[in-house]
């Protein structure tokens, strides 16, 4: 193969390359790509904002659990609508989340075993939310529980409290 046959075509931009200086084409290429990048980033941000709903129609997180006298001493009561266990011991009341800390399945109170059990991946908890066995990474959280002025129990599911806090009535 002779020298002449070898491909000698060079990209046009490089042909006028004069050491260090960038050519007009390279300059506009870079400007155009940068502009595209900025536009893409802007579009992505706007789309991301669009995809995050500002108003949600989700159930309220605070609820009244009724009069304390409804709950016998040493009992675990499941509030179906709210996915919360109201536990009354000799010391007082506390509220335990019924949503498994593993993957969000709803646990069930098994009185015969004195356990809270998760149907999805087999986690088991005591009535105070501490884990007995299974893949759950954390104990079930305790929610803030207070008394309303008219004497009802009020549970706030947004506020978690330390498990040793109980509401004395």
């Amino acid at each position: 193969m002779s020298e002449a046959d070898k491909p000698t075509v060079k990209p046009e931009g490089e042909a006028k390359d004069s050491g260090g200086e960038i050519s007009r084409r390279d300059f506009f290429n870079e400007v155009a790509i940068a502009a595209l990048g900025v536009a893409g980033l802007g579009a992505a941000t706007v789309t991301y904002r669009y995809l995050s709903p500002n108003v949600l129609f989700e159930p309220p997180t605070t609820f009244r659990a009724g009069n304390p006298d409804l709950y016998p001493v040493n009992s675990v009561t499941y509030i179906t609508d709210q996915q919360v266990y109201i536990v009354r011991t000799g010391a007082g009341f506390y509220a335990v989340s019924a949503i498994c800390t593993h993957l969000g399945c709803i646990t069930q109170w098994k009185p015969e075993a004195n356990q809270i059990q998760c149907p999805c991946h087999g986690s088991k908890f005591r009535e105070d939310g501490t884990k007995i066995e299974g893949p759950a990474p954390r104990p079930l959280p305790h929610f803030s529980i207070t008394l309303t002025p008219d004497g009802d129990l009020l549970v706030d599911k947004l506020e978690t409290i330390k498990p040793d806090k109980v509401l004395k009535v």
């Binding site: 179906t80 609508d81 996915q83 399945c105 709803i106 646990t107 069930q108 998760c118 149907p119 999805c120």
Partner: peptide, 8 residues
């Protein structure tokens, strides 16, 4: 949403 089937 209030009742997880067993097993899920």
């Amino acid at each position: 949403p209030l009742l997880t089937p067993n097993p899920a």
